[in-house]
Design a protein around this nucleic acid. Sequence first.
RNA 1: GCUCACUUAGCUCAGCAGGUAGAGCACCUCCUUGGUAAGGAGGAGGUCACCGGUUCAAGUCCGGUAGUGAGCUCCA
Length: 640
Amino acid sequence: MADLQISIAGGEGKSLPEGCTVAEAIKALVSSKERKRILAARAGDRMLDLSETLHADTVLEPIVKDSPEGLDILRHSASHVMAQAVVELFGPDIKVAIGPATSDGFYYDFDRKEAFTPDDFEAIEAKVKEIAAANLPFSREMMPLSEAKKYFADKGEKYKVELLDEITDDAVSIYRQGDFVDLCRGPHISHTGLLRAFKLIRIAGAYWRGDENNVMLQRLYGTAFFDPKELKKYLFQLEEAKKRDHRKLGKELELFTINEQVGPGLILWQPKGALARKLIEDYWKDEHYRNGYELLYTPHIAKRDLWATSGHLDFYVEDMFSPMEIDDVSYQLKPMNCPFHIGIYKSKKRSYREFPIRWCELGTVYRYERTGALQGLMRVRGFTQDDAHIFCLPEQLEEEIFNIIDLNLHILKTFGFSDYDVYLSTQPEKFVGTEDNWQKATEALKLALEKKGLDYQVDPGEGVFYGPKIDIKIKDVLGRSWQCSTIQVDFNLPERFELGYTAEDGKDHQPIMVHRALMGSLERFFGVLIEHYAGAFPLWMAPVQAKVLNITDAQLDYTEKVFNDLRVAGVRVEKDTRNEKLNYKIREAQLAKIPYMIIIGDKEKDTEMVTVRLRNGKNLDPMSVSDFAGLIRKESIVGE
RNA sequence: GCUCACUUAGCUCAGCAGGUAGAGCACCUCCUUGGUAAGGAGGAGGUCACCGGUUCAAGUCCGGUAGUGAGCUCCA
């Protein structure tokens, strides 16, 4: 038998007999200490688990436990173990579908008549533990395609057969642990004993292959880690996220409400939420004026004909609310602001000398969302975009994009987001405009990103039909990412509305149009802010900055005076002069996440000072009312 | 929209085998005037989401509608 030349990437090679396993190769090439961490290996673009045999010269790149791939392998294996547990517990009538790893765990889809209940979780978890304790090896075997089809067909595993029908290889790999056999590409952990930290998370419906025309399967979500401590940390994070849920905090802090009678997906901003929003909007407007934008206001409905011209009736009608008849003319609620801005563009003849035109609007739009998609502030039917449209010359595009990104990141940073992922989406299959324009615009986006020194991922073919775009997904304090900002070049609307400007040559040309939203939707962004700050907003956007608390009625007069002085000084202040104990008042103010509590007792009254308690429980030294107002003023400067 | 679950006082929830509703907090009144996360007593508040059915009797069982949640799908 011929020997193979096997090596570890970046290390020395050895001659090993053909047909040796990856495990044997690693044993020969890696120190025993290192070896323990290795789960599998990458060879070219394939991932091999330890049981695979080698039949050619190979360079192996070990995949270790504490790598993202390592975790994926564990979780993928965990999904198999869970499937085994489910089949063993609930019988062979259950059909198994697919069970991949996801970004924070894994799932497995089952076809079962009876619904799984949370009570089943314990039984499944216990069974998984049992299987893990049995240290069953995961064994891989190759099976000719036809044989595999017959095998799974005999078992009644119709979903597996369906998957096999689409495979064109001669043979497929089958994984077996105990009596459980699954069609699977692998790789897997070597034995179930490595599954030491496992948790079922939830159950939900999911269509077979994500297609709503297919049957609904039952999806069991779980997660797994190598280290039980990591699992504990993850579960703690889930709890933390629950505590920060903007729907819960929105109710507790009286920020917004949704009223069934008003309608689902329609947000009612309560006074505290409205005030926070006003502060956000003021900041946003100031920042835009400073960056050369002009503010617009436009209406909420327009004639249906406008939406025909814009192409929304061709491409977006499913997301729009039904038309309404007004004086025998059909009108429709706006899902976007762009056609209105174009209306303003067309209000007079434009010259290249005006460019770049930068128009912004906090424009409220209405989009039909399926009921199942609605979620708190994050997904609604009426929302306000921090929209802007830029009309410019082709040669101005790159700089405009650069400026937008600059402003974008600056504003995000002010709100406490400095961690984000940037995506560049390029030309899709179906598109308008010329290849040449697409290419140039994409290049301009790319150059702007690079000039800004941003790392980005390219999403090939993911652009909108009318132009390439940049999306920025921000990461909140828990590391969850949210799509907010989007910057889109548009070749479509200038064409459809026959936009023009007089160029230097005296002739009419078509301007480049850019759409962009930085916060995306005020509603969603506010939701993200609530969760990011857990409701404890920074001083500049806290609806209530300070609350004055008296200790007894003896200080009522002075308390009123402090309250009024602060209000006159521009502090957003409340007072609590109820006949309650200080502890009680502090507790309430604390739960309301008010940044500063002003304590007024006899001491303060006599010395005309105030004692300041912070949200974190600490106290500041006594100070005068004007000093406190000055402190608030100083700390409230946005973006400093 | 689809699947599953849920919907009881302003809020968070009890109400287990069908016999016409409870708690805590909040609210109101009174007592208490107390320095850094809940002082005490009393009171008011619900056609048990809505509509229909089964039953002598329905918050409780069945069906439908609406809303909410977890997903699927979609996206700001």
